[in-house]
Amino acid sequence: MTHTVLVTGVSRPIGARVASVLAADPGISRVIGVDTVPPPSLTREGGVSLGRTEFVRVDLRSPDIARVIADADIDTVVHMSLVSAPSRNAGRALMKEHNVIGAMQLLGACQRSATVRRVVVRSTTAVYGSSPKDPAVFTEDLEPHDGPVHGYAKDAAEVEAYVRGFARRRPDVTVTLLRFANFMGPGVDSPLTRYFTQPVVPTVFGFDPRLQFVHEDDAVEVLRRTATEDHPGTFNVAGAGVLLLSQCVRRAGRMPLPLPSPAFRMLGNTVRRMGLVDYSPEQLRLMSYGRAVDAGRLEAELGWRPKFTTGAAFDDYLRSRELRPFGGVPR
């Protein structure tokens, strides 16, 4: 059987890697990559080779995506295009439109399509929020006490609601929803990876949150497997174990700067206005209460577990940025 796979968000590192891995799979006849911006060039901007992926520049918010799906007889859709941080010039409104309206358009097109058999959607563990009133470890079925009300996490929660609606209306399509912990690794560029490269890292006084990471290689492998095999359901994806923020800061050899939470919030708002980092009230909650998830369901379903633990993923990131603890050797 021939497969034609559509991957959205291929101009970002993980999306590009997923597209290139799928393009290298002999069982897949065509890989079509879409994004709102062209992928970065290989030589100058450190882009990832997309292999034989055919790139189509489509704004997900427009109905053009429906034509791409219909014209190419797509049978598998991998939706990676979830923007986690508002870009400097576009802002939050555009990000929300991209995330939520984009997902609606894509799912609407899938619902119309007679050829789509499998839909894989990237989400985030941020949908669980962070709260002192919630269990320490989230499983997929848990309803969080304080669901996300801001930013990226709220977008993801809304996208998930549309995905569940789609799964209800098209029970013949295999729908996989993957809730990823924070990506970590040499190729990841996120607010969190930039945070740990600063010489002084602000933390919230009196709190030491538990953090969890998933290595980019493992993330790509999970997406490859779910895009090529049927694994319906919602799954947490995270490296085993947790790291405390204080542990991360020490391993990176950074100087922590504990600030009372109102000061942390003020600092966050200031740097956001200056366009330096993405900061939302969710971040303050994560930096106070932390979050850990149980990835057991994914392991049972795939019969495979992420190669990198949370600690190993962070160490790999540290090696790539040449960060080391005070007086220590690189890990």
Partner: peptide, 15 residues
């Protein structure tokens, strides 16, 4: 070990 962050905590944060 404490300065270099070279210790384990479990998923509940137990050190």
């Amino acid at each position: 070990r404490r300065i270099t962050g070279d210790y384990e905590v479990d998923e509940f944060g137990y050190d």
